[in-house]
Each structure stands twice: as structure tokens, then as C-alpha cells.
Write a protein that binds this DNA or RNA. Structure first.
Lengths: 235, 235
DNA sequence: AAATTTTACTTGTAAATACAAGTTTAATTA
DNA sequence: TAATTAAACTTGTATTTACAAGTAAAATTT
């Protein structure tokens, strides 16, 4: 079992406490010094953990006052995080596999420039539909370079996060990434899956995600139905 | 003159160097220890500065290797930052004032919940159109609580950042915030200003920005034309 | 010559310490 | 009592030190 750094341990602990409601909206977290003595670490370490929470938008820090819990709202939070937790959090996000993972050559005119290594190895391709309380919200197309991922295509993806499988079975973690966002009219295919009218506005995200494995990136093209829900983020 | 913390000074220096092209895409930044001796500070301080750069997506850190410059792409970067630099950066973003700043009561059914203090004080309202190389890109509507901002409505906004004025004249800085994003069809008014067809997909951002002044928030409703340009962000 | 090991670098994590600066509460003074 | 001042908190900034872990190049061995 790999041991996480102490500041990440504390981050996960506090995160869980906030999401479980042990600390509620508006509450003050224990002060940094209190956290130090509670968890037996020093202030720089505690502050690293709090910085992660603040980055997630789960707390707001106020000099002279403390760290105020700012529970993420009901909306879908795909923008802020991808990796630490999955997009939506705890609410029931169901996943339908539309196209099972399979190895294909990269499409011509890919949305991001590819390295030679990536081009040569081909990619693992899959399409998924994700529903929130029965409403289709995301249609996402994923591309992963076929490098060092044995038996990947045969794994079960239903209701399991793509990122969770990458982490648990291959030790691959998302470190960060970049994304482009536009509003586009829904194509026939997208409109059918998202159950909206053809041509209706859809949010389109193109993401390139970096991992801890050198040269391994995960690419996603995500179509979002924002009629009922909106994408939420902090900065 | 207020003096910035040393880590922020270094951040701004390095940022400038990267954007000016002194360090180029793919270059390795001087190592943390080198930066320490160059600028006469210690590693934690240097690391704070690098963390800010990494947050902007301007560098990528690799353990054992170094910090690699990753110049922000040509797209518009409104998602990542608002405050340190304005949305677009250096390229010529022209601003047209459509509705000059004026004091009005808050609209009923505001996009974010308001505090009692905010409700009582009314708000400063303005509408702007922002063009990139002649193409209208953003139409933004701004609301600021009318607290401690004397002579605000008479100031010149043309081609000057709203945030720059807030910082330079009132010492107000944006600390962070939250936003909702959806794709919506363009209304008549929006389509006219953005020069697109009515009903064409438009990106709609609703933002609440926190400042260093207690209780003072800046609210924006931004409509983006993403036909030619897309919104870019890192995470 | 090729493979391996070592070495010297890089960033990552963590502690202990100190003082500055903002906020709130308590004590003091008018 | 009301206003002011002081004290006791809070987070922000900064130094110093130490070792762990990942990477790349040099030295060694096979």
C-alpha cells in the first residue's frame, strides 16, 4: 500500500468531513494551529492541505478570521476537479457505455497535437453517456494513448470512474490539464443522446489531461446538456 | 506605494519574462535553487511564486527535471484568471461601453443571493462589449455593490480594465470567486451585439468575484461568442 | 561497445521558528 | 454607558534545515 503524503491525507480527511456535513456551510474550520495539534503536524503541512481545499472551493480563507466552509453547490462541478474526485461528487451519476473501449488509430485532425510516441501506439477509444437523476447530462468521448495499459479494454467500466480504474489498476493519476470551451449547436447524434432538439445549444469541452506517467495523456471531448444543470467552478 | 510580498514580486517578474518570450515554450526555467540565489530568497518563497505560475498554466513542474515553460495558447483565457491579469492578456482587446456606469437598485431575482448590506446600498451597473481584432467576443454586464466607491461612475472605462481601476483607485483586488457556465441560445439583444444569428449558441458565464474588501463582491454576467475563438483554461 | 551503477542534479515533503497583519474579544478609560 | 485601547486570537509571509524521490548524465563494470 502506497502511503500518501501527510498533507494529502489531511486534505482527504477534511474534504470528507465537509462533504459528509460534519462541518457545515459557513462553519469555521479549526484554526491552523488547532489542526496542527489535532493531527500532529506543523503549520506549513496543514497549510498545504488547506490550500488544496481552497483550490477546490470547499473553504475560503480569511486573514485574521479563519477558514470558512463553503460547500460546493448543487450544480455539477466538472471544471474544478478531475482526478482527486470525479466530476460530480457523491450524487448518483449513472454511466452508460455507448462504445466499449477498443483500440483504434488516432482520428485525423485530432483536437490536440500528438507526440510521435502517441501516434505510433494508437489509442484506446470509448464513448459514454452520463445521467444525473435520469437526465442525460454528459456525452463524453475519451482517447488514451495505448501505452503500458494491458488488459485495459476488457475492464468493466459501468458505473465506475475511468479515472478510478486508471488509478487503482495502473497507478495513473491525473495531475492537471488544459481545456477549451465553446457553445455549439447539437449535432444529430449528440441531440439524440442528450435528448434535446438538434441545433440546441450544447457546451463542448475539449480537454487534455496530464498524468504522473511521462508522456501519457488522457483526452476527452465532452458535450454537456446545460438546460437543467449548469457547470460550476471556482477560481 | 504598497510593496508586494516577495513571492508575488517574483511571480510577476517570471510571468513577464515568459510572456515577453525571454523564456520560450518548452524551455526549462532556472532551477529553484538557482532562482533562490538570483533573487536572494529561500526555496519556500520561490516555490510559492512557481505555484502561482503553475496555477496560471504558464509552467508545468516535473519532479527531478524542472519547471517547463508552457506558454498559454492563443485562445482567450477568461476562465483561469481574473485579477492578476485581465482576461485576455496582451492581445488587443478593445472595449466599448454600452451602458455607462450608473447606480441602480439591484434587479429582482438576481443570479446570486445578496447580503442585506448589499441590498440596501444599491449597485453600480454597466454594460460593455469587448472585441478581439474587430470581432465582438464578450458582452458583459457588471454589478458592484455601491459601498465605499466614491466617484466611481464618473471614471473613464474605455480600453481600461474594470479590475485595474478598482485596484489602482480603490485598492480593491479580486481574490477568487465562483462561476456557473451554460450554453444558451442568443437573445435578440445579445445576438445583435455579438453579430451572430438569434438563437445561435452562446456561452453564458455568471460569476461572483470576491475581493479583499470585506463584503464587497463583483458580479458579472458574460455572454461569449465562441464561433471563432474558444475559452481556454487550465486546471 | 553495451549494460549497469553511481553521482549529481532536480523537485517533493516536512519540521521548527519568527514576525507581520488582519479580526475579534476583553479590558480600560473617558 | 460609550468610546477607545489593549490583548489574544486568526492567517500571511519568510527563513532555515533536512531528507525523500525522481531524472539525467557521467563513471564504471561487464
Amino acid at each position: 500500500m502506497i502511503t500518501l503524503p501527510r498533507y494529502k491525507e489531511l486534505y482527504h480527511t477534511l474534504r470528507k468531513h465537509i462533504l459528509e456535513g460534519i462541518y457545515r456551510e459557513g462553519d469555521l474550520l479549526p484554526s491552523e494551529n488547532e489542526l496542527c495539534s489535532i493531527y500532529g503536524m506543523t503549520r506549513p503541512t496543514v497549510r498545504q492541505a488547506l490550500a488544496l481545499l481552497a483550490g477546490d472551493g470547499l473553504i475560503r480563507k480569511h486573514q485574521g478570521k479563519g477558514s470558512i466552509v463553503h460547500r460546493m453547490p448543487r450544480e455539477i462541478g466538472i471544471l474544478s476537479v478531475a482526478g482527486t474526485t470525479s466530476a460530480v461528487g457523491d450524487r448518483g451519476l449513472k454511466t452508460d457505455i455507448i462504445v466499449k473501449p477498443k483500440v483504434i488509430p488516432w482520428p485525423g485532425e485530432f483536437m490536440f497535437p500528438l507526440s510521435e510516441t502517441e501516434k505510433e501506439s494508437g489509442c484506446i477509444y470509448m464513448e459514454r453517456l452520463r445521467l444525473l437523476e435520469g437526465t442525460p447530462i454528459f456525452y463524453d468521448i475519451n482517447y488514451i494513448a495505448n501505452i503500458n495499459l494491458p488488459r485495459f479494454t476488457s475492464r468493466q467500466f459501468k458505473d465506475r470512474s475511468l479515472f478510478k480504474i486508471l488509478r487503482d489498476h495502473y497507478g495513473v493519476e491525473i495531475k492537471g490539464g488544459e481545456q477549451r470551451i465553446r457553445a455549439i449547436p447539437a449535432s444529430g447524434k449528440i441531440s439524440r443522446f442528450l435528448k434535446i432538439k438538434p441545433g440546441a445549444p450544447v457546451l463542448h469541452l475539449e480537454r487534455k489531461m496530464e498524468t504522473n506517467v511521462n508522456g501519457l495523456y488522457v483526452y476527452s471531448s465532452i458535450y454537456c446538456n446545460t438546460e437543467k444543470y449548469s457547470i460550476f467552478g471556482t477560481f
